[in-house]
């Protein structure tokens, strides 16, 4: 099946079996290994991507569903020279241990801050409730999202 969609800002077209999982397509066919797979069942959020700006789970989507969509993976969040303010905040706050959950955490945070630019710590916890961190680094992750929210309110941050 021929599928065309936008991937990290670029129009792409690929001939692929329609029932291929999106996480496999991204990692294996496009080499975008920033998208992780852990549970494969929608519980952990490691495979989170943005579909038309909304967080979704690439392990629970089939290639055919990408048709005409705008997809952003962690690789497309910033260019090679700069980091997205949420990425910078994760670095500065040390909100990373093994790093496996981080792409999903960051993309879920992008979605959260778009809907709610001034979240409380409780809002952040709810917004990230679909993303598991097994190094139990949640406090620093919440700190980082709080910093990023504050930073994104000021233009110079961008």
């Amino acid at each position: 099946m021929n599928i065309s969609f936008r991937l990290n800002g670029e129009k792409v077209e690929i001939d692929v079996r329609p029932d291929r999982r999106v996480v496999d397509l991204l990692r294996e066919d496009f080499g975008l290994t920033g998208t992780k797979e852990s549970c494969g069942a929608g519980d952990c959020g490691a495979c989170t991507i943005l579909v038309d700006g909304e967080s979704r789970l690439s392990c629970l989507m089939l290639a055919a569903q990408l048709q005409e969509r705008e997809i952003v993976t962690i690789e497309g969040l910033s260019d090679e020279e700069t980091l997205h303010p949420i990425q910078s905040a994760f670095v500065e706050r040390g909100a990373v241990q093994c790093g496996f959950c981080v792409p999903g955490m960051i993309l879920a945070s992008v979605d959260l801050l778009k809907r709610n630019p001034t979240p409380t710590r409780h809002d952040i916890r709810e917004g990230l409730s679909g993303n598991l961190c097994r190094c139990t680094g949640y406090h620093k992750i919440v700190d980082a999202v709080e910093d990023a929210a504050a930073c994104l309110k000021d233009d110079p941050c961008r």
């Binding site: 979704r56 629970l60 709810e126 409730s129 679909g130």
Partner: peptide, 9 residues
């Protein structure tokens, strides 16, 4: 119900 990404799907 579930989590934000599951609610989006």
């Amino acid at each position: 119900l579930a989590s934000p990404p599951v609610r989006h799907m």
